[in-house]
Each structure stands twice: as structure tokens, then as C-alpha cells.
Design a protein around this nucleic acid. Structure first.
Length: 419
RNA sequence: GUGAGCGUAGCUCAAUAGGUAGAGCCCCGGAUUGUGAUUCCGGUUGUCGUGGGUUCGAUUCCCAUCGCUCACCCCA
């Protein structure tokens, strides 16, 4: 007996009853993003491993232990993309998209990280990402946040999410800050837990992010990035706050907000929620001004964010209304009706904005009407020998209390046009 | 990688202080041989996650293993 093959852990099938929510959410996100002048870019799922290792940061968990990496037949090391920005910049440089030009881009698709799955976190997950190149901000920073806010409003979850912002300063001030932070935590090392001792070596800023209640006081009195910002970084952050105040986009300054990936600088931000379990970040991003140059392109300021579609779906599902397509279930009785009906269905679909489900597999009237009722069709059109003889078709309403109608077959071809 | 909880019908779940299992939903047929959704009647549902141990006998007890879920870590 052969054991059934199952899906890989953390890689989910999206079945028909859920896929329609995905389609609708993606439609809304695309439509809004296009409205802001962003264009879609579609990128490979596979890249050379080096691309991610260099950009995301050698010491991050993503690169150290979460990448799906394997050898190609010719010995090249390839990796399934764990995030979208690296590939986007690679493509931008490769095709000269950033050369003396502003680019507003977005992407949507699966990402892969080899983590232990839990609610809102899977090994194949989906991100919708928005990126802008060639703009230094802070105006573009505000645009990003307004754009995201439009998502939440359109999806009716704006009351469930909170915008948190912070600044990491430029490379110099960040390095200086990091030095003082390391010193501070080194001096208090006996108070740190194991995780934080590890972070002290790998990514000290992340200690600020610790959930350990015992460390909260220590973190509270740690050095603040704001005291190490140079005037330019200060002006950038103040400028952003001023715009956000002006457009009345609510936000919280969270000095402990640190992004996990190495490439972030200046403004960083997160949209968080308390509604979906432990994975409470729905959407996050920031500046990565050094990344294009680091990857061999001309120095180009850049900012972007990504939102996790699985997490968004958890927030959205119950209050999302799906668009409905009026649908006719075509009941066909007898061989003559089947032959005529197939062609008739084609004409109705072509001339009207309606769905037509043709009954396949025969069955008597009762059985076919049962199927019609179980489908989400709002009416059944009945065609049998009697109708063919009189050149009429019966139209029966399944969801409304309206009498059945007889309509000339030639008229049914355009009958639904106005609906 | 660490920890906890859970695996019984397609789905949601019962049950047996060890004697090879039920209910609802779903699906199919009939009452109604050309009128659905309501109602009534009937029918199919299973290597009780897998392997081993104890036992006359294990879905039940023990061990192992796999899977799922949630949390830690980390991140969207």
C-alpha cells in the first residue's frame, strides 16, 4: 500500500472557497496601487543564492537558516526568494530602470522561508510589495503610508491596524548608536536572557524588540536613536511627521521599532494589529537607500513595504463582500436540447455580462433543478423538447419570488444585457 | 531549532474505566415518470494517523514514529 503524498509542511493549498477572497483582495490592492501611479513588476521565484545572502544580511535568521537553497544541475546555488526587494533591485539594475529615473513599482506573489509554521506564518507565503526608487523622501515616505492606509480603508479594517514609525538614522548615525547600545547592554549583560545575549552579537538593535517582560525596564532606559541622529536624519523624520500630521494620518512613534533586515535605514514603519495571534505585523517597510549602490547600481534612494496576504486575509475575511456575477443555470432535457443549448449558452455569455452554467451529465428536470439550486445561479433556464417546438425557453427565478417566464429563444440571447 | 496540545467517515464531532464504532452536515435515490430550495422515507460512507509492545482480544493502556495546531525564536 502506497502512502498518500501530502503537501509540503507550511505550503498550503488555497481551495475554491478561499481563493475567491484572495482574488478580491488582490484586485483591491492592485487597483489602489495603480491609482497612485505604481506599475506591476513580475519577477522570478528563483535567484542566485548570493543575491539574498548579500542584501538581506549574512547574520539574519533568513539567510542563516530559513532559505530554501539547492544546487542547480550545473552546480549553481539557487534560492527560492525569501522576500521581494532583492530581486526587484536586481531586475532594476539589470534593465536600467533606475537610471536617472523615478520608478514606482509593485509586485505580488509567493515567498519562501523555512520556518516552523504557525498562525499567520507559513513556509510558502504571499506578499504584496510596493517600492519607489529615486526619491529621497520624506514626501515619498508619507505617500507609502497613505497608500497603505487606503488599503485598510477599502478593505474596512482601518480600525484594526495601527501605524508605528521610527527612524534608524543614516549609516553613520546608526553605527554610532549601535556602538553605544552594545556598550549599554554589555554593561548590563547579567540581566539579559539567552536570546538577547545572542542578539547582542548578531543584531543588537533587535534587543529593543524583545517580548521578555523582565527586560522591559532595561530596554526602556537604553540609549535612544534620536540622540544620535545627525541633522539631516532629524529633518527627514520631522518632515515625515509634519506631513502625517497635516494629512491627519494617525501614527505612533515607536523608538523600539527595528526591522529585521540589514538594509533598512532612516524611516521604518509597521502596521500592527492585535487581532490575528502572535504574528501581529501585517505590513512593514522602510528606506533602503544604500542597497542599489551596494548591488552595483548607481546610488539611488529607495523605500518600500510589503504586506503579508495570509495575515491580511485573517483580518479581512469576515467583512469582505465579494462581487457577484449574475448566473443562469441552463437546464437541458433531451439530446436535441443539449445540442442547441451548448450553442445558445455561448451566445448568452458573449452578449451579456452574466455567467452561464450548462447542465452536463443529463438528469431529469428535478435533478437538474436541484443542481441549479445548489450552484449559486440566480435563475434556471429550462430547455426541452416542448420549448424547442414552440421556440421558447422557460426562465425560472431561484432566489426571488417572481413568476416563471416564457421567452423566445432568439430573445434570450440578449435578455440579460441591461442587468 | 525549542515547548505544549491534538490525530475516529469528504467536513464538524461523539463513544467504549480494553469485546473491531456512531450522530449531524454533505452526497445519491425515491415520495413528485417536466419544476429547485422546505418536509418525509431510504442508501453509501471508516486499514479509529502509522509501526511495535502488553493482552485471549487494543480505536481505548504503554512505547516509538509521522502529521496537524498554537506558542517561543524570527519575520510580512
Amino acid at each position: 500500500m502506497v502512502k498518500n503524498i501530502q503537501a509540503i509542511r507550511g505550503m498550503n493549498d488555497i481551495l475554491p472557497d478561499t481563493s475567491r477572497y484572495w482574488v478580491e483582495i488582490e484586485r483591491v490592492l492592485r487597483q489602489i496601487t495603480l491609482q497612485y501611479g505604481y506599475q506591476e513588476i513580475r519577477l522570478p521565484l528563483l535567484e542566485f543564492t548570493q543575491l539574498f545572502a548579500r542584501t538581506i544580511g549574512e547574520a539574519t535568521d533568513i539567510v542563516e537558516k530559513e532559505m530554501y537553497t539547492f544546487l542547480d544541475r550545473n552546480g549553481d546555488s539557487l534560492t527560492l526568494r525569501p522576500e521581494g526587494t532583492a530581486g526587484c533591485i536586481r531586475a532594476g539594475i539589470e534593465h536600467g530602470l533606475f537610471y536617472n529615473k523615478v520608478q514606482r513599482l509593485f509586485y505580488c506573489g509567493p515567498m519562501f522561508r523555512h520556518e516552523r509554521p504557525q498562525k499567520g506564518r507559513y513556509r510558502q507565503f504571499h506578499q504584496f510589495g510596493v517600492e519607489a526608487y529615486g526619491l529621497a523622501g520624506p514626501d515619498i515616505d508619507a505617500e507609502m503610508m497613505l497608500l497603505a492606509m487606503r488599503f485598510w480603508q477599502e478593505l474596512k479594517i482601518d480600525h484594526k491596524v495601527e501605524l508605528q514609525i521610527n527612524t534608524l538614522g543614516d549609516a553613520d548615525s546608526r553605527a554610532k548608536y549601535r556602538e553605544h547600545l552594545v556598550k549599554y547592554f554589555n554593561d548590563n549583560q547579567d540581566m539579559l536572557d539567552e536570546d538577547c545575549k545572542r542578539r547582542l552579537l548578531s543584531n543588537p538593535l533587535r534587543i529593543l524588540d524583545s517580548k521578555n517582560p523582565a527586560l522591559q525596564d532595561l530596554i526602556k532606559s537604553a540609549p535612544k536613536i534620536f540622540d544620535y541622529l545627525d541633522s539631516k536624519a532629524h529633518a527627514h523624520f520631522d518632515g515625515l511627521c509634519k506631513i502625517l500630521d497635516q494629512v491627519k494620518l494617525p501614527y505612533v512613534i515607536n523608538p523600539r521599532l527595528v526591522r529585521g533586515l540589514d538594509y533598512y535605514c532612516l524611516t521604518v514603519f509597521e502596521w500592527v494589529t492585535t487581532d490575528i495571534g502572535a504574528q501581529n505585523t501585517v505590513c512593514a517597510g522602510g528606506h533602503y537607500d544604500g542597497l542599489v549602490a551596494q548591488m552595483g547600481g548607481k546610488a539611488t534612494p529607495a523605500i518600500g513595504f510589503a504586506l503579508g496576504l495570509e495575515r491580511l486575509l485573517l483580518l479581512v475575511a469576515e467583512n469582505l463582500t465579494l462581487p457577484v456575477l449574475d448566473t443562469i443555470y441552463l437546464v437541458l432535457l433531451g439530446d436535441r436540447a443539449v445540442t442547441v443549448g451548448m450553442g445558445l449558452a455561448e451566445k448568452i455569455r458573449k452578449n451579456n455580462n452574466v455567467g452561464v452554467i450548462v447542465n452536463c451529465g443529463g438528469g431529469d428536470l428535478s435533478a437538474q433543478l436541484k443542481r441549479a439550486n445548489k450552484s449559486e445561479a440566480n435563475m434556471a433556464a429550462i430547455l426541452g423538447d416542448a420549448e424547442l417546438d414552440s421556440e421558447e425557453i422557460l426562465l425560472k427565478y431561484l432566489r426571488e419570488d417572481k413568476p416563471q417566464q416564457r421567452i423566445k429563444i432568439e430573445n434570450i440571447e440578449n435578455f440579460f444585457i441591461t442587468k
